[in-house]
Amino acid sequence: MLIGEFADRSGTSARMLRYYEQQGLVRARRSANGYRVYDEGELPIVHKIRSMQELGFELDELSPFVTCMRAGNPSGDECPESMDTLRRRLTEVNDAIDELLAIRELLHRQLATAESKGYQ
């Protein structure tokens, strides 16, 4: 399918598809007249890219998932490199949560101290 139809079906823009292709994540063939032609099999890959971006992943982190899907794994999460990437991101999220919880505790203490001194 041509880039316009593929963009509509994948829920992204033609510009983003060209960028994904430039980053080596999505593949397109060229027709005789030079138009990009996408295979149906690229749709799940684009959906995976978009869903991973929604989880905070950067494009340069997604090649293990794309490689895993191209190897025949439906979700792209099953391969060792993908799992390592997921674990690394989970650690980053847990660290961010811990940091925010510590900040929240400090703010509670500051507010409690101010309130105990009669400040409104």
Rank of each mutant, 00 (worst) to 15 (best):
R15P: 04
G118R: 02
M16V: 02
E42Q: 11
R18G: 00
N94I: 11
Q110E: 14
L107M: 07
D8Y: 11
S116A: 10
K117F: 07
D84Y: 15
E5N: 09
R9V: 04
E78Q: 10
P64L: 00
V26N: 01
D8E: 14
L100Y: 09
A96Y: 11
E115R: 13
L2K: 14
L43S: 06
V26R: 02
D60P: 04
N73I: 05
M16K: 07
K117C: 07
Q53W: 04
Y20M: 03
Q22G: 12
E92A: 15
T12I: 02
Y38H: 06
R9W: 11
V66T: 00
G76Y: 01
P80Q: 02
A112E: 09
D8S: 13
K48D: 04
V66G: 01
D95T: 09
Q53H: 05
L86D: 01
E58S: 08
E42V: 12
L107H: 09
V66K: 02
C79S: 05
A28S: 13
E40G: 10
K117P: 07
M1N: 10
Y119N: 11
Q110T: 12
R18E: 01
V46L: 01
R70M: 05
A112I: 04
T67M: 13
F65D: 02
D8F: 12
R9S: 06
S31N: 10
E40M: 11
L101C: 15
D95K: 08
D77W: 08
I49R: 00
L55R: 04
R27L: 10
N94F: 13
V37F: 13
C68M: 04
G24W: 08
A112R: 10
Y20E: 03
E61C: 00
Y38N: 02
C79V: 04
V46P: 01
L107P: 14
A28Y: 12
E99Y: 12
Y35A: 15
D60H: 09
S13C: 02
T67I: 10
